[in-house]
Amino acid sequence: MIGTTKKPLEEIFQAVDGYAKIAVVGCDGCAKVCMTGGLDQVHELAAQLKEQGKEITLEVSPERTCNIMHARNFLTPVKDQIAAADAVIVLGCGGAVQITRQTTEELGLTIPVKVGLDSVGHMDMVIPGVMAMEQCQECGQCILNETGGICPVTKCAKSLLNGPCGGSENGKCEVDPNRDCAWVLIYNRMAALGELERLQRYMAPKDYSKMSKPRVLYIKEGRCA
């Protein structure tokens, strides 16, 4: 999922400063799981905006706002409430905001679409409802087969491909003593699997052209460019 955190309220108030009527759109996908943008948080923000003297024209939370199909299905029937607002604020990832903007444009509305969350990365839920962790950066050339299913591109603070740096101590990372050194994890895993010899292979520099922005996924052709 895409991890999100709430922006400070003052920043949100600043973003909608000068707009009297606000439509609040959440996301019942990742943002709901992160407890930052589901329907509960939409209502909460709407109440806070009302306290600031704003009029709220809409409170909805599409199932996955980053998907244009869901956004259309949800927002088309409430077009008038969006049109009645001076601005839309989206409690979703950066993608949800842009898909919402696209939807309003498709609906023929020219209205500012603002963001109420900060997107903080591709996150995997490791402790349900408590902790999610960044484990993949979508590098376009997955090397997990060589590293025991533990990603050094993401979990090593320096994205080292050929083994640990000198700063690892007691199995922890030089950058944060509370975090495991990815390369010690990889070593232990490969040792347990009896595959240590795989670690001896030279790993060539990554092809970062596979990560050059913005990537487009052509689903029918199964190709990313």
């Binding site: 050929n162 083994g163 640990p164 000198g166 690892s168 101590e169 007691n170 199995g171 390369w183 010690v184 070593y187 232990n188 240590l196 670690l199 001896q200 030279y202």
Partner: peptide, 17 residues
Amino acid sequence: ANPNFEPLDLQIIKMEK
């Protein structure tokens, strides 16, 4: 190279590389 590294064999693998 870091002789303090634990597990030392992981350091040796990197040195070999």
